[in-house]
Computed example of a mutant assay.
Amino acid sequence: MSRSEAVNFDGLMLAESRERISLQGRDQFRQASEAMVRQAKRTLDIFTYDLDKPVFDQGDFLEAVKQLALTCRGMGIRILLQDSERARREGHRLVDLSRRITSKIEIRRPHEDYIDHPENFIIVDRIGYIRRRNTGLYEGEANFCHPMEARLLTDFFSEVWERSEQESSLRRLHL
C-alpha cells in the first residue's frame, strides 16, 4: 500500500508499521526522518550527498539524533557524506554534534567508486528506511518496518563504509 498526501508520521511505529509511504517534497522527507529517528534505539545510517540542511539540520531531527547518540550502545550513528564542501563552508549543526559526541557519531567520505551514487537514504535500527532515488528530487519512499529492504540497504551501506575514509575536512582542529 502506498500513500503520498497528508501523512500522520507520528502514528507510524518503527518495527511495526509495514506500509510503504510515497514521499513528495522536502517537508515530507523532514517529517518522516524526524519521526523515524525519534523512535530509534540502536543505529542510524545516513548516506547523503551534502547533509541536506532542510532535512538534517532541523531542531527536532537533531534532538532525536542527540538522544540516540546518548542512549545507544556502541557506534550508533554512521554518516557517509559524498560532498562536504557546503557543510564545511556554511556550517551544519549535525556536523557540530558529531564533533561533540565523537564516540557515537562518525562521518566518512565514500570511496571514489561510490562518490557519485545517485541515491540518498537513511536506515534506522536496521528495520526502517527512507530513500530518495535521485539526490536532486524530493521524491522517494519510507517504510517503518521492512527488514528485507533495510537489510539490503544496510549491506550496501556497510560495504561502502568499510571502503571509506574519515571526513577530515569536517574535524575540529585543536590548536
Rank of each mutant, 00 (worst) to 15 (best):
residue 167 E to L: 12
residue 36 M to D: 02
residue 62 L to W: 03
residue 68 L to Y: 02
residue 144 F to W: 09
residue 78 R to H: 00
residue 145 C to W: 01
residue 118 P to Y: 03
residue 41 K to P: 05
residue 51 L to Y: 06
residue 157 F to S: 03
residue 21 I to H: 04
residue 138 Y to W: 11
residue 92 H to G: 03
residue 100 R to D: 11
residue 104 K to R: 15
residue 149 E to C: 10
residue 81 L to R: 06
residue 22 S to I: 10
residue 146 H to N: 08
residue 113 D to H: 05
residue 160 V to K: 01
residue 4 S to C: 00
residue 107 I to V: 12
residue 57 D to P: 04
residue 161 W to H: 07
residue 38 R to P: 03
residue 171 R to Q: 15
residue 172 R to I: 10
residue 4 S to G: 06
residue 137 L to S: 13
residue 76 G to K: 01
residue 60 D to H: 14
residue 70 L to G: 01
residue 137 L to H: 12
residue 92 H to T: 07
residue 111 H to Y: 02
residue 50 D to S: 15
residue 89 R to A: 13
residue 134 N to G: 04
residue 146 H to P: 00
residue 81 L to M: 14
residue 15 A to C: 08
residue 82 Q to H: 03
residue 19 E to Q: 14
residue 54 P to I: 10
residue 93 R to M: 04
residue 7 V to W: 02
residue 52 D to R: 12
residue 170 L to F: 11
residue 158 S to H: 07
residue 91 G to K: 08
residue 56 F to G: 01
residue 49 Y to N: 12
residue 7 V to S: 05
residue 58 Q to H: 10
residue 28 Q to H: 11
residue 13 M to H: 14
residue 30 R to K: 15
residue 44 L to Y: 11
residue 137 L to M: 09
residue 80 L to K: 03
residue 18 R to N: 10
residue 79 I to C: 04
residue 143 N to M: 02
residue 174 H to I: 07
residue 113 D to I: 03
residue 162 E to C: 07
residue 47 F to E: 13
residue 72 C to R: 00
residue 9 F to N: 06
residue 121 F to C: 06
residue 113 D to S: 11
residue 157 F to P: 01
residue 121 F to L: 04
residue 32 A to D: 10
residue 58 Q to K: 15
residue 2 S to Q: 09
residue 116 D to K: 05
residue 96 D to G: 08
residue 90 E to Q: 11
residue 171 R to A: 14
residue 51 L to W: 07
residue 109 R to K: 13
residue 79 I to V: 08
residue 87 A to K: 06
residue 116 D to S: 05
residue 35 A to Y: 07
residue 136 G to W: 12
residue 143 N to C: 14
residue 91 G to C: 11
residue 78 R to Y: 00
residue 122 I to V: 14
residue 141 E to T: 04
residue 96 D to V: 05
residue 5 E to F: 13
residue 168 S to D: 15
residue 142 A to G: 02
residue 91 G to F: 11
residue 61 F to K: 04
residue 149 E to Y: 07
residue 158 S to E: 14
residue 64 A to H: 01
residue 102 T to P: 05
residue 89 R to W: 10
residue 69 A to S: 02
residue 152 L to R: 15
residue 142 A to F: 03
residue 152 L to D: 13
residue 156 F to V: 00
